[in-house]
Amino acid sequence: MKHWAIWLPLALFGLLFAVFASGLIAPGDRTIASQMIGKPLPDFDLPQAVPDRPALARADFTGGKPKLLNVFASWCVPCIAEAPVLAQLARAGVEIDGVAIRDRTPDVQQFLARHGNPYTRIGRDDVSKIQFDLGSSGVPETFVINGKGIITYQHIGEIRADQVPMILQKLKEAQ
């Protein structure tokens, strides 16, 4: 054996140490980005969630105007924080369509009565099917859909007040 070879175990140890240390110091991002960006919105047709808002289907997203598709639930705590921001977007003229995930009609009604209703249409999904269609892994999530029904942007987690200009920019880009 050549004399340099005795340093190999130490070098290997150093390499492993560096790998583990970097993983501990900067753990990887745990959010799962959808692979559906730039792809057409899959077909879906959801029933009405509340009586005063129409149901939601894929056909509602091909009207030529970019829209937001917001996945929410009355049992979701960050959705409460997001509600006033969605109301702000709705006041700015953005059309927001919602899908209530695993929710009951009275619960959704109570949620909307308490936190405001920025939605034009609300569909209801009891088995989270739309989330698998969209590549969404939780609530809340918001998707920008352009006028031709193509998904152009995914926002994971609640939209915060300081992110409103960014969302408006994404909607403008989708035009």
Binding site: W75, D103, R104, D107, D126, S128
Partner: peptide
């Protein structure tokens, strides 16, 4: 645990 962070629907069939 955070209150009401669970949905009240029964599991999917």
């Amino acid at each position: 645990v955070p209150a009401a962070a669970q949905d009240s629907l029964p599991p999917a069939p």
